[in-house]
Computed example of a mutant assay.
Amino acid sequence: MALLEVKDMTQYFGGLCAVTDFSVTFAGGELMGLIGPNGAGKTTVFNLISGFYQPSRGDIVFKGKNTRGLKPHKVTGLGIARTFQNIRLWFDMSVLDNILVSQYYHLGYSLWDCFLRSNRYLRRETEMRAWAMEILEALDLAQFADELPGNLPYGIQRRVEIARALSTKPDLLMLDEPAAGLNSSDVEGLIKLIAWIHKEFKLSIWMIEHQMDVVMSLCTWIKVIDFGATIAEGTPKEIRENPVVIKAYLGDDAI
């Protein structure tokens, strides 16, 4: 059984078709890229799979379960986590609390347990705090646990967002332009971080990225979309040399 199987996923916004017959399969353990010019529909694909949008037609099957109609927190509970092109942290909460909040779907205790401070509540709170600190330590963020994210450099905020996604214990991690806004040294660090996460956590990673050096150095398979339609897929070498992809990015004169 495939980890993720998307079949002919299509999305309309009024009369505009944003994504057309999109299909992809993750067996498990891949590091795959999704690229295309601005406005191609890449983030719409991620929004559909993570439950922020519901497809107009087509199926999204994750670990054998059709996720159509599920809310984002339900999709996350199944094992799909994501980051966003524009960082979405809670800036009035500490870094540690940002990580803790992301685990609410796995709380395992009731509202009454919380009010009564039952043994179950105390045990789970201790376990979640320990797991949150473990994730922060793994990503070299433990020293920022009590800081507000807004006080941290942009590159560190990106790592915090990735840490928050990892704290949900996903089987599929979706990264939406993780290198956006980073300087060259931060990009180098990001490439190493993503490669390490892929190896250490043994999960599938699917990333949208405009910086081709990031995609080409990390991904073993790349899918390219333009105007919502898939125009190519293959290895980094095949994509780099594909005339249809070159035309989509650079225009007819580039051929």
Score class of each variant (00 low, 15 high):
residue 67 T to V: 13
residue 104 Y to R: 13
residue 214 V to E: 08
residue 172 L to W: 05
residue 97 D to H: 11
residue 20 T to C: 07
residue 176 D to N: 10
residue 193 L to H: 02
residue 96 L to P: 10
residue 251 G to N: 13
residue 123 R to H: 10
residue 195 A to N: 12
residue 39 G to A: 10
residue 62 F to R: 01
residue 147 E to D: 11
residue 153 P to Y: 05
residue 194 I to E: 02
residue 110 S to T: 15
residue 241 E to F: 07
residue 55 P to G: 07
residue 141 L to Q: 03
residue 244 V to R: 15
residue 226 D to P: 08
residue 249 Y to I: 09
residue 89 L to K: 12
residue 14 G to E: 08
residue 3 L to K: 06
residue 135 I to P: 00
residue 134 E to Y: 09
residue 94 S to G: 14
residue 20 T to E: 15
residue 147 E to N: 11
residue 125 E to W: 00
residue 80 I to W: 07
residue 107 L to C: 07
residue 225 I to C: 09
residue 156 I to C: 03
residue 38 N to M: 04
residue 134 E to S: 15
residue 6 V to Y: 06
residue 134 E to C: 07
residue 76 T to R: 07
residue 37 P to S: 03
residue 68 R to A: 13
residue 161 E to R: 02
residue 23 S to Y: 08
residue 135 I to H: 02
residue 158 R to N: 05
residue 139 L to M: 09
residue 247 K to N: 15
residue 209 E to L: 10
residue 193 L to K: 01
residue 21 D to A: 12
residue 45 V to H: 01
residue 130 A to M: 04
residue 100 L to H: 13
residue 163 A to L: 06
residue 220 T to N: 13
residue 81 A to Q: 04
residue 88 R to I: 04
residue 191 I to F: 01
residue 30 E to D: 09
residue 64 G to P: 09
residue 235 T to I: 11
residue 87 I to H: 06
residue 253 D to M: 14
residue 140 D to M: 01
residue 248 A to E: 12
residue 138 A to R: 05
residue 173 L to N: 08
residue 70 L to Q: 01
residue 124 R to T: 03
residue 68 R to D: 07
residue 45 V to R: 01
residue 226 D to N: 15
residue 216 M to H: 05
residue 80 I to K: 02
residue 65 K to T: 13
residue 217 S to P: 09
residue 112 W to S: 15
residue 88 R to A: 11
residue 68 R to Y: 12
residue 134 E to H: 14
residue 80 I to V: 12
residue 47 N to G: 01
residue 171 D to V: 05
residue 127 E to F: 02
residue 176 D to E: 06
residue 57 R to T: 13
residue 186 D to H: 07
residue 108 G to Q: 14
residue 79 G to W: 03
residue 242 N to T: 08
residue 148 L to C: 00
residue 135 I to A: 02
residue 23 S to R: 06
residue 216 M to Y: 12
